[in-house]
Simulated assay, not measured.
Amino acid sequence: MRSRVRSAALLCAATALAAGAAVPAAVPASAQAARAPMDPNPLVVVDCSAQAHVRPEEYLLACGDGNNRLVNLRWNSWGQRTATASGTDMVNDCTPYCAAGRFRAYPVTVTLSHPRPWPGHPDLQRYTTIRLLYTDKAPPPVAKDVTYKLVY
């Protein structure tokens, strides 16, 4: 009985090893490209905490109180001059005051632009401008198309 268990365990282990050895040959080219060396001078967007990000899924716009955040960002491009995403701007309506307010969702197209060297980080450039184009209505009193400087 003991030898059967040992044989079964060895057979399972051999099968697992053989299956694992076959995986790299089956990896699609797109996944292999994802493992390619990183760009030596990547462009980043810097957040409120002075952390660099590439294609973030979320981005805090209101650093002081957290009442405005971009979420569900899906990046269409991340280039040497601009980066473009679609997502949702979650904005606290602050009614009757911010602590009691509700977050409301506004569909938005986000464009990062104007890359510049990031002081203190000689190998990185950061986007310095963010444009928000609301694809439905904008949160009052904001215009449907606004551009802000990123100062972090």
Rank of each mutant, 00 (worst) to 15 (best):
A19W: 03
M38I: 12
K149N: 12
V110T: 03
N67A: 06
G79S: 04
T111V: 14
T128R: 06
K137I: 13
A143M: 10
V142R: 12
A34T: 14
T84F: 00
A105H: 02
N67M: 05
R69G: 01
A22S: 14
H53G: 03
A85Q: 03
G64N: 12
R74D: 12
E58D: 08
Q32H: 08
V45Q: 01
R104W: 02
C63D: 07
G79Q: 02
V146M: 11
P37I: 07
A31S: 13
D39M: 05
V27H: 00
D123A: 15
A83E: 03
S77C: 01
T82W: 00
L124K: 06
R2D: 11
E58F: 09
Q51N: 14
D136F: 09
H53Y: 09
T129H: 14
L112M: 08
A105L: 03
A50H: 12
L73F: 04
A14K: 05
C98S: 12
G79K: 03
R104I: 14
T111Q: 11
R116M: 14
G64S: 13
Y134L: 10
A8D: 02
L112G: 01
L133Y: 08
L17A: 14
E57F: 15
L73I: 07
T128K: 03
L10S: 07
P28T: 07
V23T: 09
A99K: 07
R126C: 05
T147S: 15
P117K: 05
L70H: 04
L132F: 11
S49P: 00
A50L: 13
A62Q: 11
P115Y: 08
L61A: 07
V27E: 03
Y59I: 05
Y134W: 08
A100C: 04
R35P: 00
T111H: 02
P122N: 12
A52F: 06
D93V: 10
E57I: 10
V110S: 02
Y152L: 11
G20Q: 08
A14M: 12
G66L: 04
S113Y: 02
E57R: 15
R2L: 12
R74Y: 00
Y152N: 13
V5A: 13
A9V: 07
V23D: 04
G79W: 01
L70Q: 05
Y127S: 02
Q80V: 14
A143C: 06
A21M: 10
T135Y: 11
P141E: 10
I130G: 01
Y106C: 05
S77N: 01
S49L: 12
